[in-house]
Design a protein around this nucleic acid. Structure first.
Length: 342
DNA sequence: AAAGCGTGGGG
DNA sequence: TCCCCAAGCTT
């Protein structure tokens, strides 16, 4: 599949759509910082297959960073629904407005300046600076950490080993082609030096890999023991009127911040004693037979879903959803809706 | 600096 | 079913 470390595209010349191939780069083609930035934010802790459709959708709706900045935040969050880590969407919009207002619509060209923007951390700043502006940065993501930990057979576990790993990564990086190099090592990690069963025979670096020489590359990187995931319980309410559902906007901070949601209880460590107390108003609430189980990053949720029909619209200043608003629900609430028929 | 922050796919 | 994990950032 790959002739060498820097040839990350396949035989038909395909590559990830936001990338510029080395040969095109040499011919003078340059990457669009907006498109690269958008892809990097979307791919933070997110798989390429999951993120790619969102990237196309956003670029079509917002061809430039100015278009994104001028959009309503509600629209941006709605389009982000399902991609997770919603602070990314809030910061994405905020960052676009800073680019519009403070940078005349053009991304800054240095790693240090990029690092100051909301949602852009060490990895993303280094990557944009290298890919778009030929800065000799040190690109370190989870793939690079894994590759480096194996080559040097690092015994210290993650996340403690992050700083040593980034220093080692810096010793191998090619400052003349930081962008190409970084993307190549990330691709190596994504396709060959994979977490569970690395394909060492196809690896261009297998002769230099201490973990492979040891016979167990898959044992690296070592990881610190993770904490158990607690269970939380809650109730959500599907109030129906004329085929529409009552929605609320969640508080800006915290879990699913700023997103649309179903009204409901707090999510607590113990099952609710009186779940109907959390209903938005009185009604003939009927509990769904199917409890929603949804796994968040740091807890698992068990959500009871209650439904009631209302002939006359109950007094409420919240929005009753049309299809557009329903599409903007985070996944946990889409699951909740699926447990009831309407 | 440790914890908070989503989701879906794969072994 | 369960567990791991994916191109991290913020506070």
């Amino acid at each position: 599949m790959r002739a060498g470390l820097l040839d990350w595209y396949d035989e038909e010349g395909r590559t990830l759509p936001w990338r510029i191939r080395p040969e095109d780069r040499r011919a003078g083609k340059t990457a669009d910082p907006y498109a690269v930035w958008l892809s990097e934010i979307m791919l933070q802790q997110t798989t390429v297959p999951h993120g790619t459709p969102y990237w196309h959708k956003f670029l079509e709706a917002f061809p430039t960073v100015i278009d994104l900045a001028n959009a309503e935040r509600e629209t941006v969050l709605n389009m982000w629904a399902g991609l997770g880590y919603y602070a990314r969407a809030r910061n994405l919009h905020k960052c676009a407005q800073i680019i519009r207002d403070d940078y005349d619509g053009a991304f800054p060209k240095t790693e240090a300046a990029l690092l100051k923007l909301p949602g852009i951390g060490p990895y993303t700043a280094a990557t944009i600076a290298a890919i778009c502006f030929d800065q000799a940065t040190n690109i370190v993501d989870g793939n690079v950490e894994r590759v480096i930990s194996r080559i040097f057979k690092i015994e210290e576990p993650l996340p403690e080993a992050r700083q040593p790993l980034r220093l080692l990564a810096g010793t191998l990086a090619d400052p003349r082609r930081a962008g190409d190099y970084g993307q190549a090592v990330m691709d190596l990690g994504a396709t060959i030096c994979t977490p569970r069963s690395p394909n060492c025979p196809d690896c261009p670096w297998d002769n230099y890999c201490l973990a492979k020489a040891n016979g167990h590359p898959e044992a690296y990187p070592k990881k610190s023991v993770k904490k158990p995931k607690p269970i939380r319980y809650g109730a959500a309410f599907v109030a129906l009127h004329d085929g529409e559902v009552l929605l609320e906007t969640r508080p800006d901070k915290g879990l699913l911040g700023g997103m649309a949601g179903l009204p409901g209880s707090e999510w607590t460590a113990e099952p609710l004693k009186n779940p109907l107390e959390a209903a938005p108003f009185e009604g003939d609430w009927v509990k769904s037979d199917n409890e929603v189980k949804h796994v968040f990053t740091h807890f698992e949720l068990r959500l009871d879903v209650y439904k009631a029909e209302f002939e006359t619209r109950p007094d409420s200043n919240q929005a009753w959803a049309d299809d557009y608003l329903l599409a903007g629900l985070p996944t946990v609430f889409k699951k909740a809706l699926k447990t009831v028929q309407f």
